[in-house]
Write a protein that binds this DNA or RNA. Sequence first.
RNA 1: GGAGGCGUCGCCUAGUCCGGUUUAUGGCGCCCGCCUGCUAAGCGGGUUGAGGUUCACCCCUCUCGCGGGUUCAAAUCCCGCCGCCUCCGCCA
Length: 423
Amino acid sequence: MLDLRVIRDDPDRLRASQRARGESIDVVDELLAADEARRSSLAEFERLRGEQKVLSKEIPHASGEEKQALLARAKDLAAAVKAAQAAADDAQVRLDELAMVPSNIVLDGVPAGGEQNYKVLREVGTAPELDKVRDHLELGEGLRAIDTERGAKVSGSRFYFLTGVGAQLELGILNLAMKTAVDAGFTPVITPTLVRPEVMAGTGFLGAHADEIYRLERDDLYLVGTSEVALAGFHANEIVDLDAGPLRYAGWSACYRREAGSHGKDTRGIIRVHQFHKVEMFIYCREEDAIAEHERLLGWEEQMLAAVEVPYRVIDVAAGDLGSSAARKFDCEAWLPSQSRWMEVTSTSNCTTFQARRLGIRERSGAGPRTVATLNGTLGTTRWIVAILENHQRPDGSVAVPTALRPYLGGVEVLEPVVPTRR
RNA sequence: GGAGGCGUCGCCUAGUCCGGUUUAUGGCGCCCGCCUGCUAAGCGGGUUGAGGUUCACCCCUCUCGCGGGUUCAAAUCCCGCCGCCUCCGCCA
């Protein structure tokens, strides 16, 4: 949700943003009209209500015929107040609905256009030179680390078991991510993965991407696709204290995604799955600090990628490919040797005040409470196993363990295949 | 799942039975001022949030967990919901 006062004062900013995203600009004028309708109907209600209150106070002091006359007038007025209130409420509801329509205003510098119009900011590391490339599933099966056949047997397609070193590898990635976050001053949090509708809506996930989300109809709860949802809801309807600096949380949770629109895409292995684990950074800060915090989030992500020694590039995602809440988004994409392409492994969004306004998250400032900014970023997920296995594979199907992960695998330097891999 | 209790402006609290003199009481904390070598104490004032209006000050409306209803008038009466606590049952 956007700040109506900004739209009122500078509607062209929203028009430019909508254009960059490839979204409707008509909504701007509709919004301005609805706002005007709301204000005039509200003024009428308040005028009548004020009159009613004055009259109502005279009644106990009156008596006899005078009182009867006052009562009669008051009764008429009560009906008028009720009607005016209904009109004002309707206008408010219409405005509220419209206000939820536009996506966040993109920041200056964000590339315009769609998914293909991203800008590459940098490439770090070099792709391994491999004569014979095994993909992560072949490697993972050889190591008895990944079992997608039994995953499908038990839960269906896009489910999997991580076994042995596979389970250890996932825990290693997540624990290293948590350690990185805690060392950077984040508060570690284990979050709920089922949330109420208003929290899901508040984070902006029930718009265009509603099909992606699992819903438990009997209980009116949603399964989260990221702990961002719970961490954003954590301070919902609160006035937080940012005097000591931004609030930084690192959430560890399972994540659930329906992958409704991705039939036939990434069907092999564990690149695109219905359930995985993730450590997610989440920041509440002052609006003016958001851009700097965003850079920091990207920095911690790159620190993690460096630690697992995987080549990657950083892209500045184009306006049309941003989520509705994001004003800017940087993705880190790891090199995927088996497909000779880049694969998203982290994503960090600056949501400015968009989420916080919907969720009622404010801070105290000299001029009274004001809405905070929220940001999020990935620090590690199950998918990282894919990038690590493929980039650290060796000709015999074994996989070198990056130094930073060795403590989480009992000090082992190389993961050896349990059965010879076929080729 | 059943029974009971509770929810008031940062925290605590009065008011709710019996609707109007409540612009919601008082204390703590916090902020400003006065006083005082300094500090403390003391004295005076301020201190929920949202919206409207305005250059600004002022003023107005809403806000007593949330949403409805009754009434000229609701913190107060009625209905529904949510959250927390206690006990019982069931499950682990």
